[in-house]
């Protein structure tokens, strides 16, 4: 099993101090097109705390709650589950629920998944979707990256929002363990559906999700 913990290697730690690169996004403006109309927003970022993302939402004229789930902590815990037969799907869902730390009444407006789906087997992605389902409402939106095809992993790294039109990427030297195509993600992340996919110059397949 090729699960890798983020920032577990000296190379990764070194990369964390490298200069972030800016990637022009085509879908972020659409993701946030109605953000000014919302009175209070709840953002779930599957990554670790990022000041860039925090600053972006901090300048809004809207009360904002951001949950940083730091999914990297979970890779090693979930890896053994998919090695076992039969796969304990319920346990995987419960692990996600515990890790995400959402309150039962929490409703997610924006879900930032970045490249995190590519750290997990499809069954684990489906478990994540099941864990998120009660927190998704009809106006929830999501954002993440897919691979063009299963043989072309996307570039791993620490992602954050640069501004309304771009994301920042602090490059990561490790290779992502999976390269899920848009179809694989659509088949397993079923609490939302993919409404748009755009191939960026850097090779990222940018995906926009809606409930």
């Amino acid at each position: 099993m090729a699960f890798r913990r983020r920032q577990s290697t000296p190379e990764k730690q070194a990369s964390a101090t490298s200069t972030p690169q800016r990637i022009q996004s085509r879908l972020l403006p659409q993701l946030f097109s109605d953000i000014d109309e919302r009175q209070h927003i709840h953002v779930l970022d599957l990554g670790a705390g990022s000041n860039a993302t925090l600053s972006f939402f901090g300048q809004l004229d809207t009360a904002t709650k951001i949950t940083f789930a730091d999914t990297s902590d979970l890779c090693d815990e979930l890896a053994p589950l998919t090695d076992q037969a039969p796969f304990d799907f319920i346990h995987a869902v419960q692990t996600w629920q515990r890790h995400l730390g959402l309150q039962p009444q929490d409703q997610i407006d924006y879900l930032l998944m970045w490249d995190y789906l590519h750290y997990f087997e499809p069954g684990i992605i489906e478990a994540l979707s099941t864990a998120l389902q009660p927190h998704v409402h009809r106006e929830s939106r999501g954002y993440g990256f897919g691979s063009l095809h299963s043989g072309k992993p996307i570039r791993g790294g620490v992602y954050a929002i640069g501004d309304e039109n771009s994301v920042t990427l602090t490059p990561d030297p490790i290779t992502l363990p999976h390269a899920h195509s848009q179809q694989v993600i659509a088949d397993n992340f079923i609490c939302m559906h993919i409404t748009r996919g755009t191939l960026l110059r850097e090779g990222h397949l940018e995906l926009l999700f809606e409930a």
Partner: peptide, 11 residues
């Protein structure tokens, strides 16, 4: 940069 945070931030 370098700070480690897991949880929610309510602003």
């Amino acid at each position: 940069d370098g700070a480690k945070f897991k949880g929610s931030i309510d602003m």
